[in-house]
């Protein structure tokens, strides 16, 4: 068997189908998208008849499309919220659960429930929380003694996207909690027992043992949260629609509108290509950022 697997031709035969599949559905379309992005193209005519604009579509992204810039700002809000709010909260929950509490399994399931619910449903639930007319928030404020209180949380540009971000961040806390919980559970109890002997318990043990050893898992969570933020679409549409009136646009919605509704295939392709590059770049930067922590973790 070993002899067989050391044969390069055999390895190639095993890898080739997957490689071809990957090339066909990811790499080739990516290059086609990059190619289309150089044209003023509506998808209805032959690409050979389309006007070549070179970097024109990319220049327009940053100089002639204020909505796209708003969508990038919103993505940044989502990334920051995911990395600095969602993952820390998920860690706190995971750490508490992993230490063992009564009803650990039940809590684990409860916290994970929002993840298995479709984002469109979560969006609608939060719509009913923040809606000005029928929403819970306004009703609670009124019940607390401000009878005339009325605020358009979802259509006021100052609050609309924050409400969406709140919902998006809340939904996936359980997702990261499960990943981190599994990571914490996989840390050998020996470390913690040794720490107890050295006098390090509670927060100290978390800081000096759990967090350093969890670095590779945290990295995975950060990559998933970041890429997930860039791809956000459904929860925004179900909460506030696809319009840009309240500053709630995200790149995926713009992509859909440009490529399918607006027939701006060339421009939409430039946005898509740019986002792919951003995702790859962010993944690389995160990998670099965690490189040292991962090396330290592997030395344990």
């Amino acid at each position: 068997m070993n002899k067989l697997l050391s044969n390069k031709w055999v390895i190639t035969a095993f890898v080739l189908p997957t490689l071809l599949f990957f090339l066909g559905i990811v790499i080739v379309p990516l290059f086609i998208t990059g190619y289309y992005s150089l044209f003023n193209y509506n998808g209805l005519i032959n690409i050979a008849d389309a006007e070549f604009v070179g970097a024109g579509n990319y220049i327009k992204l940053f100089t002639g499309d204020s909505v796209f810039l708003v969508s990038l700002k919103n993505t940044a809000i989502l990334i920051i919220g995911s990395v600095f709010v969602q993952i820390p909260l998920a860690f706190l929950l995971a750490n508490r659960l992993a230490k063992g509490i009564p009803g650990e399994k039940a809590f684990r399931t409860i916290f994970f429930i929002p993840v298995v619910i479709a984002a469109t449903i979560i969006g609608k639930l939060f719509y009913y929380i923040f809606s000005a007319d029928i929403g819970m928030v306004n009703a609670i404020v009124r019940a607390l003694g401000v009878p005339d209180f009325y605020f358009n949380w979802l259509t006021n540009p100052a609050t609309a996207f924050l409400c969406v971000a709140f919902a998006a961040i809340w939904q996936y806390i359980g997702y990261h909690m499960i990943i981190l919980y599994a990571g914490i559970k996989s840390i050998s109890a020996d470390y913690f027992e040794a720490a107890v002997i050295d006098g390090a318990t509670g927060a100290k043990a978390t800081r000096h043992i759990t967090i350093p050893l969890l670095a590779p898992v945290v990295k995975t969570c950060v990559v998933l949260a970041t890429v997930g933020s860039v791809k956000t679409y459904d929860i925004v549409v179900s909460m506030v629609g696809s319009g840009s009136h309240s500053g709630t646009q995200v790149p995926a919605i713009l992509l859909w509108r440009n490529l399918f509704k607006g027939r701006l295939v060339g421009y939409g392709s430039a946005q898509a290509f740019f986002l792919v590059v951003v995702c790859l770049l962010l993944s690389y930067l995160i990998a670099r950022l965690f490189k040292k922590s991962e090396e330290n973790a592997s030395q344990y």
Binding site: V67, G243, S244, H245, R257, N258, K261, G262, R263, L264
Partner: peptide, 13 residues
């Protein structure tokens, strides 16, 4: 056309 219609609709909204 579709793309320009979207600009108009967004602005009116």
């Amino acid at each position: 056309p579709g793309d320009l219609a979207d600009i108009h609709l967004d602005a009116c909204q």
